[in-house]
Design a protein around this nucleic acid. Structure first.
Length: 431
RNA sequence: GGAGAGGUGGCCGAGUGGUCGAAGGCAACGGUUUGCUAAACCGUCGUAGGUUAACGCCUACCGAGGGUUCGAAUCCCUCCCUCUCCGCCA
């Protein structure tokens, strides 16, 4: 019998539903709690009954075996009872499958429980700013948006990309392509060499089970690009691939924490964001992102979240980009997250901070779905905690760099740390 | 895509239609012995669900799903995956 797959622990609901619901707050509004409770009870009733009958049947079968060996004739009484039990078991089992399926469907729809330090709120207005780093760059001229800058420098080509693939795609060209590549390499080197992450290059296509494990499915299928012929999905973030590296594994305690970094393209349908950020690199169907993922013991995950955030901030600080950090409120967090920090970079042309990284602790939410456990030295296996953060989204970093370091003549200075990755080039200018 | 082989516990590796949840070995853990290490010896040593205050007990699982049978890891079917060879290809 399959175990009940869940994202929040069914036992927690069974034993302290009130507390679970209270902590979910607004996030638990849509859940049909009565049905969950009912299905759980039904399932347990059926399972208990089936197991009792199976036990009885097993005993009888053993007796038949002994009699056969002794050469005794068949006992019709026993045979009849065995048959009856089989029918009853079959009948009850037929009820278990749909019960479990419905229960799992309901449980998979329940978002994660926010951590107690998460501010309560319904939208971004309740997010809490933690800190700012740097200052708004002082320009003696009015800053050009990255789209105009990129096109006049002939490093970004949105028109030709649209011709071949539609809107929300781009062709990077010349120093633009090189800048993108330089950023990827700089971030990967920083995280692997200074911050202790192991680089991986994972699959960009993932199956249904993988997407369910990290929480994209079943609820957010409409946000994903899907390949029907093979039932595979293009990853919306490397988080999916990396977290699934250890799906259905029991890790040794000494192996934790595990830290991975990957640069991958990310593919998002952006359904429902029509009209939002239609121009430029901000919101693309395909973009590169360097992603950090950690697997930790439960008691260490919140320290790890702070560490992850620090690693992400280091990237922005070394690039010299002005940013701020906010703790997301309960209503603004993603489905799977227990706590999230957003890192927002200053975009001079728009004059606003825009998200460039999101760092989350999923606690055991993904681990439970993906069945990722570890074995403590003393006791029973436990679910690990998973975390991830963008370190950083490359396209948006390009935007920030172009706009922040632009010069009045339309050229763009290359940040010091990137120069080695740009072959010593110190600015991008018109040719 | 074509042909063949195979999928058993952390690993290796037996296995027969009926006390097989599964021999044996390795690894791991605990202990005895030991100046230390090693060796040797003894013991423990899968996952999940149900039940119990707890010790424990019960059930399921030998790639997945069906079928045959009183009974299946063992026989049959379908699917998935891995490996080898051929073809194709970056």
């Amino acid at each position: 019998m399959k175990c009940a797959l869940s994202m929040i622990d069914i036992r927690a609901i069974r034993e302290s539903e009130d507390e679970v619901r209270q902590r979910l707050g607004d996030r638990g509004q849509e859940v049909n709690w009565d049905r969950v409770r009912e299905l759980d009870a039904t399932r347990r009733d059926l399972v208990t009954r089936v197991e009792e009958r199976r036990h009885r049947r097993k005993t009888l079968l053993g007796e038949i075996g002994i009699q056969k060996r002794a050469g005794s004739p068949d006992n019709p009484e026993i045979l009849r009872e065995v048959e009856e039990l089989a029918d009853q078991i079959k009948h009850d089992e037929a009820g278990i499958t749909p019960t479990e399926d419905e229960l799992n469907d309901l449980l998979l729809q329940i978002p994660n429980i926010p951590h107690e330090t998460v501010p309560v709120g319904v939208d971004e207005t309740s997010n809490i700013e933690c800190r700012r780093w740097g200052t708004v760059p002082e320009l003696t001229f009015s800053p050009e948006p990255h789209v105009e800058l990129g096109e006049s420098l002939d490093i970004l080509d949105f028109k030709r990309a649209a011709r071949m693939a539609g809107s929300r795609f781009v062709v990077y060209k010349g120093d633009g392509a090189r800048l993108e590549r330089a950023l990827i390499n700089f971030m990967l080197d920083l995280h692997t060499q200074q911050h202790g992450y192991t680089e991986v290059i994972p699959p960009y296509l993932v199956n249904r089970a993988g997407m369910t494990g990290t929480g994209q499915l079943p609820k957010f299928e409409h946000d994903l690009f899907h390949i029907p012929s093979d039932d595979l999905f293009l990853i919306p973030t490397a988080e999916v691939s990396i977290t699934n590296i250890h799906r259905e594994e029991i890790l040794g305690e000494s192996a934790l924490p595990l830290r991975y970094v990957a640069n991958t393209p990310c593919f998002r349908r952006e359904a429902g964001s029509y009209g939002k950020d239609t121009r430029g690199l901000i919101r693309q169907h395909q973009f590169n992102k360097v992603e950090l993922v950690s697997f930790t013991k439960p008691e260490e995950s919140y320290d790890e979240l702070e560490r992850l955030l620090t690693d992400v901030e280091t990237v922005l600080q070394q690039l010299g980009l002005h940013y701020r950090v906010a703790t997301l409120c309960s209503g603004d967090m993603g489905f799977a997250a227990a706590k999230t920090y957003d890192v927002e970079v200053w975009m001079p042309a728009q004059g606003v901070f825009r998200e460039i990284s999101s760092c989350s602790n999923f606690e055991a939410f993904q681990a439970r779905r993906a069945r990722i456990k570890f074995r403590p030295a003393d006791g029973k296996t436990e679910f690990v905690h998973t975390l991830n953060g963008s370190g950083l989204a490359i396209g948006r970093t390009v935007v920030a760099i172009l706009e922040t370091f632009q010069q009045e003549d339309g050229s763009v200075l290359i940040p010091e740390v990137l120069k080695p990755y740009m072959g010593g080039l110190d600015k991008i200018e018109k040719h």
